[in-house]
Design a protein around this nucleic acid. Structure first.
Lengths: 154, 154
DNA sequence: TATTGTTATACTCTATAACTATA
DNA sequence: TATAGTTATAGAGTATAACAATA
């Protein structure tokens, strides 16, 4: 399981399915965290900015998208706003609600992080053959989409 | 990238390689977090316990394995020790050092979490064919092992 | 001098509960 | 009454810097 982060398995040894997937998930998270840290943002902040790339949700919608309590979303947005990465604006339809959007600086930051991170991921896949990469992409996509259909919007 | 956690892609649509891998990593982390939370432990605590399943490292070694500062490891072990999940013992070889090990309760807890979590992961792979599952396992293992060889112990 | 581990301190992230202002 | 958002508060997790004990 989440056991062996620093334990390099002996060469030519194959991990169990679960161990492999867990270690892969930590690897992906570490790549993302490292690139985000270069710009002094956390994974949570990066996730927030990533969500806002193609949306302008209300605070409630944002909390749902992030899987957080609304008070947690308030804090996250507060800190991002203080850094000039996002901004709040009143909703036209509902005077209780506010929408959150990227600023120009926020958009620039998330683009830079995303670009470097994507290169890291492709770098990690370097040893795979073309057909292996295609198979991985297809299978992973199938797992994620199926999980979303079962749980998220059915 | 880390963008669309709540955005179910339309059925029959395939994610990009990077989006798929990022969403898969969040999915795995969420499964682990949910099972750990059933026993009131965090992912960090679970990772600590997982590492200790087959090791009795010193605090320094533990910090390296977790990728944390030694002061962070102190806090993590403090909280786990207060809950009776791990214990410290003096090193025979070096009077500065202490070793950390699972207690009986800690071992029981990590086994239960690991078992339930593994079932969750296999559940998430349910829609795959036998050969797809084998291909996924092999490719993922290859990526993780190669990354460990390049970085960790070469 | 260098290393091992802890402590003091500060910040981010998260949740619960209580509050306000709308709806 | 119910919902949207904030505030107050508390705790986990993390890092940096300074320290004591030992190597």
């Amino acid at each position: 399981m989440a056991s062996r982060p620093g334990t390099g398995p002996a060469p030519n040894e194959q991990l169990t399915t679960v161990d492999g997937l867990v270690q892969l998930s930590f690897l992906i998270q570490e790549l993302l965290e490292r690139r985000a840290a270069e710009h002094d943002v956390s994974i949570s902040q990066t996730r927030l900015l990533g969500i806002l790339r193609d949306r302008t949700p209300t605070m409630s919608e944002l909390a749902t998208l992030l899987g957080l309590d609304k008070s947690s979303a308030t804090g996250l947005v507060d800190r991002a706003e203080q850094r000039g990465l996002v901004e709040r604006s009143p909703s036209a339809a509902d005077r209780r609600a506010v929408h959150v959007r990227l600023t120009r600086a926020g958009r620039a930051l998330v683009s830079r992080v995303a670009g470097a991170f994507e290169a890291d991921v492709f770098g990690a896949l370097e040893g795979l053959s073309h057909s292996q990469r295609e198979a991985l992409s297809k299978i992973v996509s199938q797992v994620v989409v199926q999980h979303a259909e079962r749980h998220g919007r059915l």
